[in-house]
């Protein structure tokens, strides 16, 4: 594989990551969201492996396998099991104003490109436009957490954000040191454990996973 083909494949995968991020932004069904999240993880994992191959950084293979195990298999499995247990598998969330959310998403992508422009000019790597896309994925995850009102959806937004970060870490810089990547993976696992507990607590206390009801803590006046 020559360098141009590799660059094109990586850019294609980056585009797919962004596309799944947009898909998640407007997907109403929780089940579909988890599917999209798993796909995003898969693109991420493949892209990491290709970067590792092209740049000859073999520790990226470990990251790739780690992503595959964690983001494509384990986390979607846990989420599926949780929504099954909580009996919210078929729940449909109302997403307010899809066109507007999409437009904000597009604005965020443009913003990310302009923000990372100075970095891009300096980069000589195959993966030069990845940083912008990674940042855009982070921002869209953030947007998702703001616009959605369901606890599970917020968590998927959070994990999508984490995907964006991981994308930046592996693809833009040819991978962070392994100890850092492993540490981040452990943190994500602990977070998964914690939000699992949370779902049950919220569900039993508020009788639903709609976080809109959690508005009791306000400034005293």
């Amino acid at each position: 594989m020559d360098i141009h083909t590799t660059a094109q494949i990586i850019n294609f995968l980056a585009a797919m990551v962004l596309l799944t991020a947009f898909g998640m932004l407007v997907q109403r069904r929780i089940y579909g969201l988890i599917h999209l999240f798993a796909w995003q993880g898969l693109f991420l994992s493949v892209s990491t492996a290709i970067v590792g191959y092209a740049a000859g950084r073999h520790h990226l293979y470990i990251s790739s396998v780690l992503t595959l195990a964690l983001k494509v298999i384990l986390l979607p499995y846990i989420l599926n099991a949780l929504i099954h247990k909580l009996k919210i598998r078929k729940e449909i969330e109302t997403v307010v104003n899809v066109p507007l959310t999409m437009l904000i998403g597009i604005a965020l992508v443009i913003f990310s490109y302009s923000l990372t422009a100075p970095v891009r000019e300096m980069s000589t790597l195959v993966t030069r436009s990845i940083l912008a896309i990674a940042l855009a994925t982070v921002m869209i995850g953030l947007l998702m957490m703001i616009t959605r009102r369901h606890a599970v959806t917020q968590i998927i937004g959070f994990l999508a954000m984490e995907n964006g970060l991981f994308f930046a870490a592996t693809s833009a810089t040819y991978g962070m040191p392994l100890v850092v990547e492993l540490g981040v993976a452990i943190d994500v696992l602990i977070a998964a454990f914690i939000f699992g507990i949370f779902f049950f607590h919220i569900n039993t206390t508020f009788d639903s996973l709609d976080v809109e009801q959690m508005a009791r803590l306000k400034e005293g006046d």
């Binding site: 957490m145 606890a151 917020q154 959070f158 914690i194 939000f195 949370f198 607590h201 919220i202 206390t205 508020f206 976080v211 959690m214 508005a215 009791r216 803590l217």
Partner: peptide
Amino acid sequence: PTAIEAAWKYFI
């Protein structure tokens, strides 16, 4: 309820 709300806010 308030404790769970606070913790959720903290977490997110």
